[in-house]
């Protein structure tokens, strides 16, 4: 009998395979490897989507009946899926397969952490009263689409910085030769930041509207809220520096990495290091 946990375990290894294919495609500069990375990635998100939908169904069989977006495990699974999905759309639009290394790696790491860490409970749990709201789905999806876009952006930024640190040579060799030209990477990076910023804004706003209907405060300076605002401010600064001050390339790439550190802290750091209203996301 196929269970959601089996499908999600398969997904984890599919992401690992996908990462290996993309990475070896870059290292050996062999395009068919990159292309197979794409197909394996596509396979992974299909398997994973069926895994998530099955988990949703299983939660009804247990009598709890809620979308698989309610705790740390489920959010990690969704994050992995969103990263790969966003990346594949980007790949399809930009026709650049080389950028897949980091998104595939991030998806694999998220799934591996969700599956193998003892501190992450993968059991389907019932919803506590505070989470019983239609805002749950909207809020979690918006936040994690934002986080995922920022993850893809940070991957592009790392490749960009890698390229810049080596490319005094006008005829680059090795992995560099296969990377897209820097202007395009910068532009794609920016596109990802824009996309992420829009969804992060939506995530904060849906969270705020939800908090107002659950607790009567749309903003209470809870650590999770505050850190999402910090992240938002950092990316807002990036956007202003780029459009108004004409910052490009290296500086934007570094700022994007800083932004992603904030994303990671908002997601993990707040759960483990600070306490607050948002504690169910840490279990």
């Amino acid at each position: 009998m196929i269970s959601s946990s089996l499908l999600l375990s398969i997904t984890t290894f599919t992401y690992l395979l996908c990462t290996i294919l993309y990475l070896s495609g870059v290292v050996f500069r062999y395009k068919p490897l990159l292309a197979s990375g794409t197909y394996v990635g596509l396979g992974a998100i299909v398997i994973q989507l069926s895994g998530m939908l099955l988990r949703w169904k299983e939660s009804y069989q247990l009598g709890y009946g809620h979308a698989p977006l309610s705790n740390l495990y489920e959010s990690l699974v969704f994050a992995a899926w969103a990263i790969m999905l966003i990346y594949l759309v980007l790949e399809f639009r930009s026709k650049q397969r080389v950028l897949g290394v980091f998104p595939a790696l991030f998806s694999f790491l998220a799934m591996a952490y969700a599956s193998f860490s003892t501190s992450v409970d993968s059991k389907i749990q019932p919803l506590v009263p505070a989470l019983k709201s239609n805002w749950l789905i909207a809020h979690v999806i918006a936040c994690f689409l934002g986080y995922a876009a920022f993850a893809v952006s940070s991957g592009i930024s790392m490749l960009y910085l890698f390229q810049k640190s080596r490319s005094s040579n006008p005829h680059p060799k090795g992995a560099l030769a296969i990377l897209p030209e820097s202007r395009q990477m910068d532009e794609l990076n920016y596109q990802m930041i824009l996309f992420g910023f829009l969804w992060l804004s939506l995530g904060i706003i849906t969270g705020s509207v939800w908090a107002n209907s659950a607790w009567g405060t749309y903003w209470s300076w809870d650590p999770k809220e505050t850190w999402s605002l910090i992240t938002w401010l950092v990316y807002a600064a990036v956007l202003h520096a780029r459009t108004m001050q004409g910052w490009r390339g290296t500086r934007v790439a570094w700022l994007s990495l800083l932004g992603f550190v904030c994303v990671l802290f908002t997601y993990f750091g707040v759960n483990f290091l600070l306490s607050g209203l948002h504690s169910y996301a840490g279990r």
Binding site: W221, P223, T226, W227, L229, I230, L233, V234, A236, A237, H240, A241, M244, Q245, V270, L274
Partner: peptide
């Protein structure tokens, strides 16, 4: 000026950060 904008963004970010580290 845009410098002020970016300054205010980052100052707000840092001050908010301090507020999450010290119990309120």
């Amino acid at each position: 000026s845009l410098k002020l904008t970016v300054f205010v963004f980052l100052t707000l970010a840092i001050c908010s950060l301090v507020g999450t580290l010290l119990p309120q």
